[in-house]
Design a protein around this nucleic acid. Structure first.
Length: 251
DNA sequence: CTACGGAGCTGAGAAAATCA
DNA sequence: TGATTTTCTCAGCTCCGTAG
């Protein structure tokens, strides 16, 4: 819902955006044609028009870097439909929680259709070029965990993506308590033989693989893929909810 | 085992609205 | 027009919770 968004304009906050929406001006184009209806100062109108024109051009170019410095993190979810074609769901498995003492084992990336797994000791390097394809990344707790972890282990990757962290987005719509718990609350079920796998089990699977158990790696990959595929389901639900919640001020 | 940025709150200061 | 009040944005501050 970037097309409905005005809060990325400097000096425009929640209040002004709601004021605009309440006049049934829900889109950039409607603002340009009908801004006379709104009771806000001339200087703000001018500024908004300028930024709306710019935003239209940049969104046409699919240039997420225009929006990155303007849009606060907590609103990156609004760019989900506009950047759906350049969006990926990301999750890593590691040998532990500490960036200093532990390593990445696998990274799963799902573009909404296909999933890929990058594996330590095999093709982890290919993740560098893969991630460059995307404008928007969706994770769970990735802001605190996955992204800083990857940045430390693969320091030459410069993350310049829009980023929806579902941990915080889901909290806004009333869900908290860990990814597995939220999946349960929403009735998302995991497949048979990996329904009992959690993060710590993923660490043990990697150790079994390193001791020569090839099937342990298959199971780990399967788990990692299921994680990212489920992220899309969660993102779809979250987006729909947050959008409705935003517009609930219009009555 | 561990760090990090989000949410939420507060107050400063700018901008805008109101009044004389 | 100039002075005062009100509204609004934003930066700074703690605290908390989640990841393998």
């Amino acid at each position: 819902m970037l097309y409905n968004t005005f809060q990325h304009i400097p000096g425009i906050g929640k209040k002004t955006e709601e004021k605009i929406w309440k006049k049934q001006i829900l889109t950039w184009d409607l603002f340009l044609s009908e801004h006379k209806k709104i009771n806000i100062s001339e200087s703000k109108i001018k500024k908004i028009c300028k930024y709306v024109e710019l935003s239209k051009i940049e969104i046409e170019k699919k240039n997420h870097l225009f929006f990155l410095p303007l849009l606060s993190r907590s609103m990156h979810w609004r760019a989900y439909p506009e950047f759906a074609d350049n969006c990926c769901f990301l999750d890593i498995e590691t040998t532990g929680l500490s960036r200093d003492y532990h390593d990445i084992t696998t990274i799963a990336v799902y573009d909404g259709k296909e999933s890929k797994v990058f594996i330590q000791g095999k093709n982890l390097d290919e993740f560098r070029s893969e991630i460059k394809k995307y404008s928007l990344i969706v994770t769970y707790n990735g802001i605190c965990f996955d992204i800083p972890f990857i940045e430390q282990k693969l320091p030459d990757i410069g993350f310049d993506h829009l980023h929806v962290d579902l941990r915080f987005a889901l909290k806004k719509i009333g869900y908290s308590g860990g990814l597995k718990s939220i999946e349960k609350q929403l009735g998302i079920v995991r497949e048979g033989d990996i329904c009992d796998v959690d993060g710590y089990e993923a660490v043990r699977l990697w150790k079994r693989y390193k001791r020569g158990d090839k099937r342990a790696l298959d199971k780990l990959m399967k788990y990692n893929i299921e994680d990212v595929v489920n992220l899309k389901t969660l993102m779809d639900i979250t987006y729909k909810n947050l959008r409705e919640k935003s517009f609930s001020c219009i009555q």
